[in-house]
Design a protein around this nucleic acid. Structure first.
Lengths: 348, 348
DNA sequence: CATAATTTTGACTTCGAATTCAAAAATGGT
DNA sequence: ACCATTTTTGAATTCGAAGTCAAAATTATG
């Protein structure tokens, strides 16, 4: 056995005895080089000779060495971690979003720290954690107060608002053109002679719901429709079900079209209309949603809706964020995508 | 202005000028104490006088200081980060799981690094990242090869298998008693005189599907049923739809009961039976699933299924993992939960 | 072959918080 | 008021990789 190999296995033995993981110093010692050399060896484009690189790499593999990302982050001031914040109490369709974001970030060697918010205290906690963990950036798929957004700006942590934006002032955001989408839906309903409209909203504090309902209302007003009833749901299937059941059976007010703030509620409304009110969809009543959630396309439903281009929106969000991380001087950017009208079978 | 306040605002100014975030040294300097004191102040049960704590805290707030979690992790060898790995190409119901895990971990001040796997190279990449980021532990809601599991054991990274387990040898896992669940379903069908069974499986490489289908098969054999057809799906709604449509319309073999590897496929099967084959459920054909996914309970479906106690399972997984993180000497533990039979309306 | 130009290398410092240990301060008992 | 005991405090070290800079090794040039 050569001296070289002897040294390697000695170090290896020592690490095992002490149950320690290999550090760059260990690799250096085993390979008979300096720690700097090991570091450079793992750095893209580091100034290092081929011979040295091979030698170090061989030892690194032997010892199971991988650079400690924590230590690296400390000195480089780059954690390669981004926070993704989603709002849990809304039934908007986030699962697919997470997968999509994860795919995009991983491609760039960036990792996702996931935060799910349920109440206000979660928000402040999240802000603290984001700060403590030195995340490089944040994707916000949750509604925050303006003062909470300031938290990021003050600390120059780049962030992108997903599916939301700020009305006043600049910020990075990726949204779907809600007004346009709702217009398509309303126009479609109007053209087929619907007269009495019910709007089924999301939770009162949801800006997304507000935006969508407002979009629909505006168009309805433009078309001089004023037979409108507004009912408050909370994005969930059961809220859609209950609200429509109550509206029609108890309040005895029967719309000929229901415009829902999201797809899942629309499915609830659909089931209530059919099962509870003995109505036929779309003969007696039409129903539309918004999102393009998977179940909306199932045979039993085939909901008429506007589908958000989730994949492109996720790509855009990641893109915008990564750009600001690389170059903090870039000005804010709002990217707006058009939704796709899906002609289902829940409208006349 | 007192000397004290003067010093604080001087430091604050300096940080702002250099666009630096406050460190414990800055706080120490501003408060006229040592860095050690600042550190102790932020440590639960640190040996520090009330007066000092208040003084430091006041300055910390003033400077917007929060301990740098990265630096802390480096010295404490505890990142307070766990990796959660989910398999993306299966349509099992993970979204709720993520929310549940997130809630539990956050309660304990632990954060989730999310990994979604799509192919084999994602796995090796994930393993490297887990190692590099010094995660304290791992929740595995994805199928891994034995050699890949060894990666964790060799490095003594605690991990918990979710919804899966190893047959041979010990490991931490949280599962639902699949055999028992399938037995309930089969028995239910058998009692109501079903004779011809179709099993609709998940993807061939899914251990979960294998387990579930095997459970159903075993019980069927015990009951001396042998009129069984096995059809391969992939957990998705559309695979369920297509496979059942094809089976009944083209192969002209009509079962009187379909046992699906998961709920979402069962819903596809349901729709295919009704819309494509003009059958009535449950009069002509019965359908059962497994999971307790949300859409299965919707009025249009009301699927008969076995529901997994997701919340308790998530709690258990977090619990087991955190225990092993605190105390690495604990022996492995397999926790098995019973599923809950949900008598829907898709069975005679 | 000598010298200049270039590349490669290693010693040392840095990032920011936690911890050890000894010194200093506060407290208690008489 | 004195000494013993306990509690607080701060100086110094540590974690592991990356970057700076000067020394050493290599290559190029006349």
């Amino acid at each position: 056995m050569k001296d070289f190999e002897k040294q390697v296995s000695a170090v290896k033995q020592e690490l095992e005895d002490n149950k320690q993981r290999a550090t760059s110093y260990d690799v250096a010692r085993a390979a008979g080089v300096s720690q700097s050399a090991v570091s450079r060896c793992f750095k893209q484009g580091g100034s290092i000779s081929k011979k040295m690189r091979e030698r170090v790499q061989k030892v690194a593999v032997e010892l199971g060495y991988q650079p400690n990302a924590i230590a690296r982050s400390l000195i480089t001031r780059r954690s390669n971690i981004v926070a993704v914040v989603i709002n849990n109490n809304t039934n908007l369709y986030y699962p697919e979003l997470l997968v999509e974001l994860s795919r995009d970030f991983n491609k760039r060697g960036v990792h996702m720290l996931l935060f799910t918010l349920e109440n206000e205290s979660d928000v402040t906690n999240m802000l603290d954690q984001v700060w403590q963990y030195q995340v490089d950036g944040v994707i916000l798929a949750a509604q925050l107060k303006d003062t909470q957004l300031n938290f990021f700006s003050e600390r120059s942590i780049p962030f992108v608002y997903y599916n939301r934006t700020t009305e006043s002032g600049p910020c990075n955001s990726v949204t779907c053109d809600v007004a346009e989408g709702e217009r398509m839906l309303v126009d479609h309903l109007f053209k087929s002679k619907h007269k009495r409209f019910c709007l089924l909203t999301g939770p009162a504090d949801s800006a997304v719901s507000k935006k969508r309902m407002q979009g629909a209302l505006e168009r309805l007003h433009e078309l001089d429709v004023d037979d409108i009833q507004i009912v408050a749901g909370n994005y969930s299937y059961s809220s859609g079900y209950q609200q429509i059941k109550t509206l029609i059976l108890e309040h005895q007010w029967q719309p000929d079209a229901i415009i829902c703030a999201n797809d899942i509620m629309a499915l609830g409304a659909y089931d209530a209309a059919i099962k509870e009110c003995n109505l036929s969809v779309p003969k007696d009543i039409s129903i539309v949603g918004f999102d393009g959630a998977e179940p909306a396309s199932w045979q039993s439903y085939q909901l008429t809706t506007v589908s958000q281009p989730l994949e492109r929106m996720a790509d855009a969000a990641v893109d915008i964020l990564m750009q600001r991380i690389e170059n903090s001087a870039l000005p804010p950017e709002k990217r707006v995508f058009s939704g796709v009208f899906i002609k289902g079978k829940t409208c006349k």
